Amino acid sequence: MPELPEVETTRRGIEPHILDKTVARVEIRQPKLRWPIPAALPELLAGQRIRSISRRGKYIGLHIANGTLIIHLGMSGSLYFVAQDTPPMFHDHVDIHFNDQTLVLRYTDPRRFGAFLWAEGDWLQHELLSHLGPEPLEDTFDSAYLHQKAQGRKQAVKQFIMDSKIVVGVGNIYANEALFQAGIRPTRAAGQISAKRYDKLVECIKAVLARSIEQGGTTLRDFVGGDGKPGYFKQSLFVYGRGGQDCRVCGKELIEIRQGQRSTVYCRTCQR
């Protein structure tokens, strides 16, 4: 599933090619995604200039004068560019054409868990975005904030930092990696971790996410970036997907468990 670094990589990949361009038409071949694509979307976008492209959590916003197209990649969705005459494949559900008749922005999604939605006014007030916590790479996300939010919580720290109401975009891969880098066992209760250790955890969350974005995200299953190239951060993973293998720091066997129906891998020696 594309996580924050993959979504940010996609945003950066498509931005240079569509910013300030005018939408000519929108082809919707399959409107039944996670939520139905609004029937009026082609009419709303046609003739409009893309003023900016932004991201909030795992949502991409294409901003025009009268509103915002909100895109979520779901479990297996991706945005990429094709030539005008490229025939669609079975899972290619949406094409956005531009007036310059160069590239077409195509959305493919085998599982159809993604979304194309419309918001008028401030897109951050949309019901899917208004409850989200701070962005992990911004200054509003710091150790004082995270430690305060953790007070009295018995919830495991891994689930705590994956809660989008606490902080957005720390998905399973990066939660595993950040906790390893911080030396914190993922099963520890969030409320029992000291402020000093939250200093380290916030530092590691920021570092892991920033490094993944620089390397183009983590290639898992169907993910490719907006330029059609896979991410390379998977080559740098210390724990995720490595259960039963040797820890790259101490050499002991990595433990794999299930937390909240997701895989958690950690080192009993390096993480306490």
Rank of each mutant, 00 (worst) to 15 (best):
I184V: 14
F116M: 10
V170Y: 02
P186C: 09
I161M: 05
H147V: 00
H147Q: 09
A175T: 12
I166Y: 04
Q155T: 15
W118D: 00
D109E: 04
V170H: 04
A119F: 02
F180K: 05
R185F: 09
N172Q: 06
A189I: 00
Q151Y: 08
S143L: 06
L105N: 07
V167M: 10
T140A: 15
L132S: 02
D163A: 13
L179E: 03
E135I: 00
D122Y: 04
G121L: 08
L105T: 05
P134M: 07
V104I: 12
D139W: 06
L179Q: 05
R106S: 01
A150Y: 10
G114L: 01
H126D: 14
P136K: 04
V170R: 08
A156Q: 11
R112T: 09
D139E: 15
F180Y: 14
D139F: 04
K149N: 06
P110D: 13
V167K: 10
K154L: 11
R188T: 14
P186D: 12
R188C: 13
I173W: 09
V167D: 06
E120S: 10
L179P: 05
G152K: 08
T108P: 02
N176K: 03
L124C: 08
Q125A: 13
P136L: 02
T108R: 15
F116H: 07
I184E: 03
N172T: 06
S130Y: 13
E135R: 05
